[in-house]
């Protein structure tokens, strides 16, 4: 009886823990073996399953009767459903391993594995997960790291005071080092839940005035734990910026409008947490493994 195809893996797993289920697994295997040979199963395991559930359905005689009569058909349906769901589970596991998301790189829909073992942690922007719109991502006017004419662009929506954005940094830097065909566009999304996020965003853009944006960007993440009211000047000094000019820029909030614009774009795109990465249509929320970027990049570079 084909029902044993379902029973076998269940009992086999339970059988790791208990002798009783090991016996049942053996019976299911034996039964399946017979079924494959088109012989009737003689361990009675199919019969036990059928009778047990028929008895449990007795409060609804019509249903019990149908279940009892059409058990063979039902078990075929179950087997097909199992095979189909096994296939999709397999695809999901493959996607999860490769892209960190069981629904594939282009989706940010619910993925059960992330609940079981969350790897997509992010700094919450909106408090709820929502649909992302990669088409609304803006690139022009935002700082670019790497070859401006690179074939592929990773767009990152990050926040200087978000620990998860910091956590994502080393992998991103490594990727840029390893793939010269790839550049990075960084959008700042200063989340109000983090102290100094706006200040850091302003400071970074002030450094851009002196062509030290990426150096300042890096120091902000590297020394994220040191952020305070005065540290931004220290960083400027450390990077040999013209501190007077920097101070002027910073204290007058020269880039307030740009920052608001960047933030508004993030809301348009649907960013609900930082960091969020877009690589063409693919999106990744939270720090990612190197191999996840690698897989998507190589898919796109061909």
């Amino acid at each position: 009886m084909v029902i044993c195809l379902i029973a076998l893996p269940i009992f086999a797993i339970l059988g790791i823990f208990s002798l009783k289920y090991r016996q049942l697994a053996w019976e299911a295997f034996h039964c399946l073996f017979k079924t494959v040979q088109l012989k009737p199963c003689d361990t009675g395991i199919d019969q036990r399953i059928k009778s047990k559930y028929t008895a449990k359905l007795m409060w609804w005689p019509g249903l019990a009767r149908a279940f009892y009569k059409y058990f063979a058909v039902l078990s075929w349906i179950f087997v097909i459903l199992m095979l189909v769901s096994t296939y999709f589970t397999g695809v999901g596991v493959y996607n999860y391993e490769k892209y960190g998301n069981c629904n594939g790189p282009d989706s940010n829909a619910f993925c059960i594995f992330n609940v079981v073992k969350p790897n997509q942690e992010e700094c919450s922007a909106t408090g709820v997960k929502q649909t992302l719109y990669p088409d609304k991502v803006k690139i022009e006017g935002y700082p670019v790291r790497g070859d401006p004419n690179a074939k592929l662009t990773i767009v990152e929506y990050g926040c200087f005071s978000c620990p998860y954005t910091k956590e994502a940094e080393p992998v991103v830097r490594q990727i840029l080092q390893d793939y010269h065909d790839v550049n990075l566009v960084y959008h700042d999304v200063p989340l109000s839940i983090h102290k100094y996020s706006i200040e850091a965003a302003e400071a970074a853009l002030c450094a851009k005035d002196q062509d030290k944006y990426w150096a300042y960007h890096d120091i902000l993440f590297d020394k994220q734990n040191l952020l305070n009211d005065t540290v931004f000047y220290d960083f400027a000094q450390e990077l040999n910026l013209n501190v007077t000019q920097f101070k002027e820029c910073y204290s007058t909030k020269k880039y307030e409008a740009e920052i608001n614009q960047s933030y508004a774009n993030a809301l348009d795109v649907g960013i609900y947490g930082t960091p969020t990465f877009f690589i063409k249509q693919a999106n990744l929320v939270g720090p990612q493994k190197y191999k996840t970027f690698k897989a998507i990049i190589e898919d796109n570079l061909g």
Binding site: G44, Q47, R48, K50, S51, K52, T54, A55, K56, M58, Y68
Partner: peptide
């Protein structure tokens, strides 16, 4: 099948 009868009664 008599085994079915026995198995069903057993669930009760």
């Amino acid at each position: 099948n008599p085994h079915d009868v026995a198995l069903m009664l057993n669930t009760h």
